[in-house]
């Protein structure tokens, strides 16, 4: 039970890192709170759902499509909304309200388009992919079914989500530390004014970060049917609060700190589920308030916050 809970927490923790990653990247670069983050995740989930239902696209194969589409949408959206905000007196608060409005618009349009009913994708789809990949390695066909790790069995979907989330974190790390644009992005995160002064095209850097942020949210959405239960147009708010909790635990504005936040959150969530299930839903809220009050800079604090 203990080992199972721990491993499940780890898998969910990786997934929660992915949920928070995009929000933290946007906050780190622009110092604005994307309150519509959860709604972009929801849209990603719907896209994956329709890709599967209409074209039988496996969720794993849907990931690059979903990511690219949202990243591309993010660029014009950035130029439409953000530069105006950053000129205002209190961009943080204004962005909060603006993106709240956007979140309502997205939820409303989705509801109008798809109705309020709950949807899901059969988890077996992810199992098929994993079994195929495993089959390539071991050289013979493998049953698609639950997966065993250290003697504990987990749904294939959980493992797939965990693996993809880990890869997404790696992707962000490589972007930030191994590309020129990522290098400039880090410069903007450290000091926006100085970055402007040294002639960095801050808007281009920010627009890419914004696009990547939305893309990551949407990728997290692909797994939402398996990890968060069914998908509905109204799921966004809860997801946003969860994402915020994760990044506050890790470290606001430090994208890689999100991983720590996600793991802490995922593991404590699983322990609550196993041992105090009726109170488990309280966890994100109490954790969020406690961390904000006790250690507002997050568990990683300032020292590690070099981005």
């Amino acid at each position: 039970m203990l080992l199972y809970t721990l491993l499940a927490g780890l898998l969910f923790g990786l997934y929660f890192s992915l949920i928070g990653l995009g929000l933290n990247l946007v906050f780190g670069v622009m110092r604005i709170v994307n309150l519509a983050h959860g709604d972009f995740l929801m849209l990603g989930a719907f896209l994956a759902f329709w890709l599967f239902t209409l074209f039988a696209v496996n969720p794993i194969s849907a990931i690059p499509i979903v990511f690219a589409l949202f990243a591309v949408v993010g660029l014009p959206l950035y130029y439409l909304l953000v530069p105006r905000l950053l000129k205002a007196r209190d961009p943080e608060m204004l962005s909060f309200i603006l993106f709240f409005g956007l979140s309502q618009v997205i939820e409303a349009i989705t509801t109008i388009a798809f109705g309020t009913s709950e949807r899901s994708i059969p988890g077996v789809q992810l199992g098929i992919v994993i079994a195929t990949v495993k089959g390539l390695f071991v050289g013979h066909k493998v049953d698609n079914g639950p997966i065993e790790i250290f003697g504990q069995t987990f749904p294939a979907a959980w493992v797939a989500s965990g693996v993809v989330s880990g890869l997404a974190v790696l992707f962000v790390y490589l972007y930030l530390y191994r590309t020129r644009l990522g290098y400039l992005t880090r410069a903007v995160m450290v000091n926006r004014e100085e970055a402007i002064a040294t002639g960095i095209n801050v808007h281009r850097v920010s627009a890419f970060a914004f696009g990547i942020g939305l893309g990551l949210a949407a990728v997290a959405g692909v797994f939402a049917p398996f990890m968060l239960g069914s998908i509905t147009p109204a799921m966004g708010v809860e997801v946003t609060v969860t994402s915020f909790t994760v990044i506050v635990i890790g470290s606001l504005g430090n994208p890689l700190g999100t991983v720590l936040g996600g793991l802490v959150y995922g593991i404590s969530y699983m322990f609550m589920q196993s041992y105090y299930s009726s109170w488990a839903n309280l966890l994100p809220y109490l954790l969020l308030i406690a961390i904000l009050l006790v250690r507002p800079s997050g568990l990683l604090g300032r020292q590690v916050r070099r981005a």
């Binding site: 709170v33 609060v241 839903n281 809220y285």
Partner: peptide
């Protein structure tokens, strides 16, 4: 009232979390 130590958006989010926590209880 300790939430007032937080600025802007953090105050708002923490306040939202508090309301949701009360509902859960």
């Amino acid at each position: 009232t300790p939430l007032f130590r937080l600025s802007g958006a953090y105050f708002s989010i923490a306040n939202l979390a508090a309301a949701l926590a009360v509902l859960q209880v």
